[in-house]
């Protein structure tokens, strides 16, 4: 079980959290201006990063708040957790899956 550091509550066991998938996905401001491929990219395409992955978590059985985390998907070790709206702490540390960087 993962030990996850909620930015509001501190270290808590994984069972208090729900997972929210890839972070920093921004809903297009004007969806009707997109073509089908661009809309599918937003809806379905994910980096599925093998390495440091920016992702959303929610402290559902705690404070209830969403936050973001950096976690290495090859070790499950968390590098950082940070509040929604904050910039990704150290983008240089990330090695996205080759060819899938956006």
């Amino acid at each position: 079980m993962l030990l996850i550091s909620c930015p509001y509550c501190g270290d808590r066991p994984e069972i208090e959290f729900t997972y929210g998938g890839q972070a920093h996905l921004v809903r297009p401001a004007d969806p009707s201006a997109l073509d089908d491929q661009q809309w599918a990219e937003y809806l379905y395409m994910r980096t599925n990063t093998k390495g440091v992955h920016a992702e959303r978590w929610r402290h559902a059985r705690g404070c209830g708040r969403f936050f973001n985390a950096l976690r290495d998907t090859t070790t499950d070790r968390f590098a950082a957790t940070y509040k929604i709206g904050a910039a990704r702490p150290d983008p240089a540390a990330s090695e996205p899956t080759p060819g899938t960087a956006r």
Partner: peptide, 11 residues
């Protein structure tokens, strides 16, 4: 719950 490549999971 989370994406991973570790070939293990939580108890």
């Amino acid at each position: 719950a989370y994406t991973s490549y570790t070939q293990r999971g939580a108890l």
